[in-house]
Write a protein that binds this DNA or RNA. Structure first.
Lengths: 201, 201
DNA sequence: CATTTCACTTAACACTGTTAAGCTGCCACC
DNA sequence: GGTGGCAGCTTAACAGTGTTAAGTGAAATG
């Protein structure tokens, strides 16, 4: 059918992932299926299984893409030199903005099968983009404590509390379609202000 | 097959809902299906459709059960007379506790088909348990502003920010099975402390 | 030229939600 | 007492899902 046989396996994987991302963005998370993805790339459904163990692995790869974006975005922000707390504030707001702008992608990363990275131990051992971005974020939070802008605390606890707050805002924006939610941007600002104010020294 | 023919339609609906709740709690959200539910109650799958329009309506009813529980729990807390802010603190902690203790039920209420109550307008018009519990919570938040314990703000904005924070903690506890999450109770306490401190006058 | 290997497909299995049509036993009515 | 209607439930089917075992045809290798 498709004339160009893929000698390059990695190249084809990318092609499948790109198609999957477009399918998610277009038809929404609930309407995604391996068979539709296959139709879209012009191959039979089973072909995908020659490049990805199963659906979960495909979704895992998509997640990693998202965390890779997060990681580089945070890196860019850190170079602006707005001071640790300023960077943290911008990072939190950017996180929500990104999540709300890419709801289907965010869903894949956070609301699919509960176990994609294995176990908490494996998560800490494997070098994934998810781990990299989390560590980078946690370091930033620790920096805010070290610089005296936030009250000293366990960095994991503080980082996860801040993240959970923003995660809650994004979840609300994504899932509460039938709820009279206030403007998500305003909600995000309020959350950031409340939490940073609450954890300030 | 089943000898006792149900002259009482409402009674049978309850029986189905009870079975559904047990099935969720036992096999988990991902393993629930109409056919399994039918097998469990000893009827054919189509029978369920004589009592519920479709799967969504069944899940809606389960959600309403959860919000009904929330509503009465909040009512009980309010009668303890710990002062508005004390009640609010307890309510927020109780919310997380309940969500983490009933993860499958919480999933049904917040992470299924995005539209179960119709639209934001319909949400405000229909008298649902979801609406009742939200209004009660928002009123409590407004009371905290009125009593001068929290900085005055739009009650919806403040209520939703507080809710989103707790919702984020529960979501993390439910979905981040493979992430090295800190103790969820500690995370909840930190979130409550941070937010209430941040919004204090 | 024969054989192996590679890239892919066909057919199938066991599921899913949902609907149209059919069966069965009981009640009311003539 | 017989019979029509009907309520309550079931069977069969449709269109879809993720996934696997087996097969096909062409290219590469000996």
């Amino acid at each position: 059918m498709n004339d160009s046989r893929h000698r390059n396996k990695e190249e084809f994987r990318r092609e499948i992932l790109d198609a999957a991302r477009e399918l998610f963005a277009g038809d929404g998370y609930g309407n995604f299926s391996m068979r539709k993805l296959a139709r879209r790339i012009g191959y039979s459904p089973t072909t995908i299984y020659l490049y990805f163990r199963d659906k979960d692995e495909l979704l895992f790869c998509l997640s990693e893409e998202l965390f890779s974006d997060m990681d580089s975005a945070l890196r860019r922000l850190s170079e602006e030199g707005a001071g640790p707390l300023g960077i943290l504030r911008n990072a939190l707001l950017m996180y929500v903005e990104y999540g709300l702008a890419n709801p289907e992608h965010y869903r894949v990363a956070f609301f699919t099968s509960p176990v994609v990275y294995g176990s908490p131990r494996e998560y800490l051992e494997r070098d994934t983009m998810s781990r990299r971005s989390y560590f980078q974020f946690r370091d930033l939070v620790a920096e805010c404590c070290a610089s005296g802008e936030l009250r000293p605390r366990d960095p994991d606890l503080l980082a996860q509390a801040l993240w959970a707050g923003m995660h809650g805002v994004i979840s609300a924006g994504i899932y509460a379609q039938d709820f009279p939610l206030v403007d998500p941007d305003l909600l995000a600002q309020t959350m950031v202000e409340g939490l940073l104010n609450g954890f300030r020294k």
